[in-house]
Design a protein around this nucleic acid. Sequence first.
DNA 1: CTTGCACCCGTAGTGGCTACGGGTTGCAGA
DNA 2: TCTGCAACCCGTAGCCACTACGGGTGCAAG
Lengths: 150, 150
Amino acid sequence: MQPFTIGRLAAATGVNLETVRYYERIELMPSPARTANGRRAYEDGHIRRLAFIRRARELGFSIEQIRALLSLAEPSRASCAEVREIAQAHLDEVRAKLADLARLENILAETASRCSGDPAPSCPVLDMLAASNGAPINQSAKIDHRIKSI
Amino acid sequence: MQPFTIGRLAAATGVNLETVRYYERIELMPSPARTANGRRAYEDGHIRRLAFIRRARELGFSIEQIRALLSLAEPSRASCAEVREIAQAHLDEVRAKLADLARLENILAETASRCSGDPAPSCPVLDMLAASNGAPINQSAKIDHRIKSI
DNA sequence: CTTGCACCCGTAGTGGCTACGGGTTGCAGA
DNA sequence: TCTGCAACCCGTAGCCACTACGGGTGCAAG
């Protein structure tokens, strides 16, 4: 039961060591106790919290959403309704993004398949990009800085 | 046929005015001529180029990919094979992202649907996030700073 | 003459990390 | 005991693709 170093915590959760320090800086992870030499000393609770965060990040929740989820996860105020609200909002975003990406996939696949590969004077991909009908492709998605393989 | 101001160019292409200046700074768009008062004076060619860029960005191509596409689009060296290579690489990324998002969608939809909405002691979403099986969800996707509704 | 708009510029902020440089400590092997 | 190097410490800068901000200039209408 002796405490973990940051390196062991990072390895145990699969989170980059620098990311652990970053989470501490933005107060997503609490500052742990320090050893006499100033090294961070983590407990089991830290591992559980960081594993939760990692899993939520993998599912594309934003840091702010995770902050909310973590506060709702405190035993005193387990509110399934509020959690579901956050999850549902995120699900809606994921579905919108999915639809956008499917549209892109269609356009790209169709256009690329028409490419001969020859040094032709006209290229279907370039023609498609040059065709200036103003119809936007993405209906919904903002940039997401979310999905990340860890 | 008199030249456009930056405002008119932005409006004509649907690109944010500040983004046009940004594209000039990173040399994705050429510096246009200036009027006596120092205002940018754009020609038709600029509109075509910016419309091409916008459409490629909507399709999720990176700035660097667009740079390559633009140089391949020059009439002297229309190389359909190289264009197809870029498009195919991007299509592969889109498909990988699509698969990841579909996995997320499944997990989120299934878990959220099991939420009662009551202030229950245990919440399926929180339980799922706390469950520490180390299986990563995303196989492939790096962060993308790409897809953006304009 | 003032108001208001469109433009000019450089710089900083966004999200979520990741990398870098330079310093200190801990421990294992020779 | 010395040596080397890995692991930790810290602050800061860089990544992408913008977006926002603050402060200045020029010009026309009211």
